[in-house]
Design a protein around this nucleic acid. Structure first.
Length: 320
DNA sequence: CTACATGATTGAGT
DNA sequence: ACTCAATCATGTAG
């Protein structure tokens, strides 16, 4: 109850000092003691230039005060019975003004870009649940289909090596991605905690509403998620490069088996007058050779053009 | 390593 | 949708 009168002795070292309080401190005293001490309830502390001079003088004097004295004053102020109520009011005002303005353009939930990257990483088996190899295999099949028509998985000799190599690299990327992600998350929560502590600390000397804190946390998370997006972006790129390195059939071309070429050549030369197999014939050949229909089409396309070229060359030579 | 063979891709033409 | 022609990128024989 005698909290409020502790302001007066030290601040009134000049002449008429008992009103010369910092403005908020004055409000404090005024609101809590309006009836008991009428002189304090009047906000006339800044009525004359002299009062301003007083305030300034007192501010200047702060540096000469002893630490203990300042501490004890701080404590007294903090434990003032009206402080929570005052802070409550200030917080509400803050929420209604500044924060309300900025709240309007928040809440734009998941960034489509990051969703896209997430989906891709999950599809590639980099993010999401580990499926012990099958993820990589699935990714391979998917890649094959999307890249264009690919060979049937079973008949490709040499592919087991590719698979395991691809899996290894993918696992490596996955590993890096996850440790990095963990690091970011840790840093994020560390930083968030730090800020929360700071805000809690400051909450004792200035009004900070829970909403404000929440907003701050949101901002932090947004910043960190933009960093995460970069990580995801580069991981996606790495996967893409890996994919093109190992899955692009053009890069890892395998010659067809000897028997397959024999079968194809046999068909070609026995239908030399019209080397255009029908859809059914292609399917038949594909079955016999253990390759896909589109590979058959490729082969015949290449064969026709190259046969023609060879014939032309041979005739040129014959003419000479 | 070079030169040629070969499967796949691309773009134009129909 | 299919073919042709050119081209790419690898496989392989010398």
């Amino acid at each position: 109850m005698e909290n409020h009168n502790y302001f007066s002795p030290s601040y009134s070292d000049a002449s008429s000092g008992q009103y010369a309080l910092p403005s908020n401190a004055a409000m404090f005293v005024a609101s809590s003691t309006s009836s008991s001490s009428p002189s304090l309830s009047r906000p006339d502390y800044a009525k004359t230039p002299m009062d301003y001079a007083n305030v300034l003088q007192q501010i200047m004097n702060i540096s000469t005060q002893s630490l203990d004295e300042a501490q004890s004053r701080k404590q007294a102020l903090n434990s003032h019975s009206m402080k929570p109520a005052l802070y409550q009011v200030l917080m509400e005002i803050k929420d209604r003004t500044a924060l309300a303005l900025r709240n309007t353009q928040e809440e734009e939930p998941p960034d489509p870009q990051i969703v896209r990257l997430d989906n891709m990483l999950i599809a590639e088996g980099v993010a999401g649940p580990e499926k012990a190899g099958s993820a990589a295999a699935n990714a391979m099949v998917a890649a094959g289909v999307s890249a264009s028509s690919r060979a049937s998985p079973g008949s490709d000799f040499g592919s087991p090596i590719e698979h395991s190599e691809y899996r290894n690299k993918l696992a490596q990327i996955r590993q890096i991605y996850q440790t990095e992600l963990e690091k970011y998350e840790q840093a994020c929560s560390e930083f968030t905690n730090h800020v929360l502590n700071l805000l809690n600390e400051q909450g004792r000397t200035r009004p900070i509403s829970p909403k404000e804190i929440e907003r701050m946390v949101n901002i932090i998370h947004k910043k960190f998620s933009s960093i995460q997006m970069q990580l995801k972006q580069s991981t996606c790129e790495a996967v893409m490069i890996l994919r093109s390195r190992f899955l692009d059939a053009r890069r890892k071309r395998r010659n067809f088996s000897k028997t397959a070429t024999e079968v194809l050549n046999e068909y070609f030369y026995s239908h030399l007058s019209n080397p255009y197999p029908s859809e059914e014939a292609k399917e038949e050949l594909a079955r016999k050779c253990g390759i896909t229909v589109s590979q058959i089409s490729n082969w015949f396309g290449n064969k026709r053009i190259r046969y023609k070229k060879n014939i032309g060359k041979a005739q040129e030579e014959a003419n000479m």
